[in-house]
């Protein structure tokens, strides 16, 4: 059955990618700003809700504290989701590259 968070939204996708290394909430936002070249800047409520949601589904988990802030990291299940999304997107990209070929046929 299809999961309700799939395909991943841009926000969820970036959070999972950022949490391949352990980070606390605000650092996730900063990391995403950096890796998206400034095009994705998460707001507080969006980040809070997304972390809650991903944690609830077991795709990320708290792994400790930095001061009072909770640090999260992606789980094995979360990594499997990223792998699936990677395959889906790779397929779509291959269609982009193959489009000229198809037109010739």
């Amino acid at each position: 059955m299809k999961h309700k968070l799939l395909p991943l939204s841009e926000t969820m996708h970036y959070i999972l990618l950022a949490l391949r290394e352990p980070l606390h909430g605000y650092a996730v936002m900063q990391k995403i700003e950096e890796i998206s070249k400034g095009s994705v800047i998460l707001a507080a409520g969006t980040l809070y809700g997304a972390i809650e949601n991903l944690n609830k589904h077991g795709w990320i988990e708290p792994v400790g504290h930095s001061g009072r802030r909770k640090i999260y990291k992606i789980t094995t299940e979360g990594s499997a989701i990223l792998k699936m999304e990677q395959e889906r997107l790779t397929h779509i990209l291959s269609l982009y590259e193959g489009s000229e070929l198809n037109e010739e046929v």
């Binding site: 926000t11 800047i41 707001a43 409520g45 809700g49």
Partner: peptide, 15 residues
């Protein structure tokens, strides 16, 4: 320049 608490449609619709 960051005055919102929601930055995507999903979180806004949940709101």
């Amino acid at each position: 320049d960051q005055n919102e608490i929601f930055s995507d449609n999903q979180s806004k619709s949940n709101y």
